[in-house]
Simulated assay, not measured.
Amino acid sequence: MSHSAWIILIGSLVASSCGLVGCFLILRRMAMLGDAISHAILPGIVLAFLISHSMDGIVMLIGATIVGLLTAFFIQTLHGSGVQSDAAIGVTFTALFSLGVVLVSLYTSRVHLDLQHVLYGEIAYAPWELVTFIGIELPKAVWMMGGVFVLTLTVVGLLYKEIKLTSFDPQLATALGIPVVWIHYTLMGLVSMNTVAAFESVGAILVVAMLVIPGATAYLLTERLSRMLLLSLLFGVTSAVGGYLLAVFWDVSISGSMTTFALLQFVLGFLFAPRQGLLSRWVSYKMLQRSHTTER
């Protein structure tokens, strides 16, 4: 495969996997929790390196997942104690992110692990870091994101009914004996793994957009969860392809262009969606207004 094809594949895996798990964050009104976890995992990455003295992706994935789950636990605990939801998110992620910044400054000054490396990433370099596994040599980002994407698909497929019910009616799910708390932390674990698997290629800041925008765009176009999930995958892939073409044409950041293309899709959906689009609602309002005028 060409260098361009690898970039598009990596971007598609990131956007699709994050978009899939992001749909459930949107339905649960927890979209900003993805932003919180993406920043709060920084101390987990640093601590994983300090313990293992390795920057291996699996080690980082484990460390970040643990801290991501702790982030969700702290936020839930604060909210359950009477703190407003947005305040609980703000306090938790800023505290953990600040701790991560201090740890990076203190212990990783001589290692290629800094804020630029962790938060921004560069997808153009991702195809050059090759890893051989089971006799197959592929870019490290493809192994990482491909594995996380397959895991995300598997978990969502196996727990689809449970995640769906706990997202729409957690009280009913509890009454039916579904472990709502366990489902919640399973979802948070997937968010954490998607974030850290993507930070080297697109960066933790830009992955927040992929957690929210494809799912939000799909939400505008359908009222069925299954279609929403499929559309989020579609918008994720088109964001990667279209964003790369924009980056080549304008000679700008690839990750930024992918996010911009995803935003463009959202704007089009916001304006022209059949039922929830701004234009559709305006036409419906005018027709209703005209019918009232005719009746008079």
Results as ranks from 00 to 15, higher is better:
A262I: 00
P170H: 05
T195G: 11
G236D: 09
Q171H: 14
F168L: 15
S255Q: 06
L172W: 02
H184M: 09
W143T: 01
V191E: 02
V156I: 15
E223M: 11
F249C: 02
T174G: 15
F266N: 07
F266Y: 07
T174Y: 13
I254M: 08
V191I: 10
R275Y: 13
S239Y: 00
T259S: 14
L263H: 10
G242H: 03
Y219E: 11
L279N: 12
L279W: 15
R275S: 15
Q265N: 13
I213P: 00
F249H: 14
L190F: 05
Y219K: 13
S257P: 09
L187Y: 04
A218I: 01
A175L: 14
Y244W: 12
G147Q: 05
A175P: 10
V155I: 10
M228I: 04
V267G: 11
I163K: 06
L158W: 08
L234H: 03
L176C: 13
L151W: 05
S255T: 12
F266A: 08
V150A: 15
T259K: 01
G215V: 05
W143Q: 10
V156C: 11
T154R: 08
Q276N: 15
A273N: 08
M193D: 02
I183A: 09
T238V: 14
Q265F: 08
A216K: 04
A218W: 00
M188T: 02
G215L: 05
S253I: 05
F272D: 08
A240I: 03
F249D: 13
Q265D: 02
G157H: 11
P274K: 07
V208R: 03
T259E: 05
V196M: 11
I183M: 11
M144N: 07
K161H: 10
L231A: 09
L151G: 12
F168H: 13
V252W: 09
P179A: 09
Q265G: 14
L230P: 00
T222F: 02
F168A: 14
M193Q: 01
V181M: 12
V202S: 05
